[in-house]
Amino acid sequence: MRAEVLSATPTLFRDDLVLDEGANTALLTWLHGRVDGVFVAGTTGEFPALDRAERRTLAGLALDVFGADRTIVHVGAASTREAVSLTRDALAAGATRLAVITPYYLPVDADTVRRHFAAVREAAGDADVYGYLFPDRTGVTVSPAEFAATGLRGGKLSGAAAARFADFRAALPDARFWSGADTDVAAVARGGGAGVVSGLSSAFPEPFTDLAAAVEAGDAEAERTAQSRADAVRAALGGTVEGIKEAVRQRGFGNGRLRMPAPAPPVERIAAYARS
Rank of each mutant, 00 (worst) to 15 (best):
G238K: 05
V129Y: 07
G199N: 09
V233T: 01
P263S: 13
F177V: 01
E54W: 02
P144V: 10
R88Y: 10
A149Q: 15
G199V: 01
G151V: 08
A220N: 02
E221A: 13
A145N: 06
T96K: 12
E4Q: 14
R229F: 07
S85L: 15
A119P: 14
R14C: 08
R55G: 00
G243H: 03
V35R: 11
A187H: 09
A93E: 14
A232D: 10
A222T: 04
K245F: 05
R249I: 09
H32A: 14
L157R: 02
L133Q: 06
S198V: 00
D128W: 06
G155A: 10
F253K: 10
V120H: 07
A92D: 15
F147H: 13
A171R: 06
V108K: 13
A41D: 04
H74L: 03
L63W: 02
G195V: 04
A119Y: 12
G42E: 04
A262F: 13
F47C: 02
L31T: 01
A123S: 15
T112Y: 09
V120M: 08
G238A: 03
P135Y: 12
D109K: 14
F204G: 03
V35F: 10
P207L: 05
R275A: 15
F147C: 09
S201M: 01
R269L: 14
R169A: 12
S276D: 13
D182F: 04
V73D: 00
V142I: 13
A247S: 14
L157F: 02
D64Y: 02
E221Y: 01
A272V: 10
G239I: 00
P107G: 06
E242T: 07
R224H: 08
Q227M: 08
D89R: 10
G256L: 13
P207A: 08
P205T: 02
T11V: 08
L133I: 09
S7A: 15
V108F: 11
A148P: 08
A232H: 09
R176G: 01
F208G: 01
G254Q: 05
L237G: 08
Y130C: 11
F66W: 01
E122M: 15
V140A: 06
V140N: 08
L211G: 06
A8T: 00
A203T: 01
G239T: 05
G155P: 06
F39Q: 01
L17A: 05
D231Q: 08
V5S: 04
F165Q: 05
P48T: 10
D36T: 13
L58D: 05
A247I: 06
V84T: 15
T43H: 10
K245H: 04
T138K: 03
L58T: 00
R114F: 11
V241G: 05
T71G: 06
R121Q: 15
A236V: 02
E4R: 15
L28N: 02
G45F: 00
S85E: 15
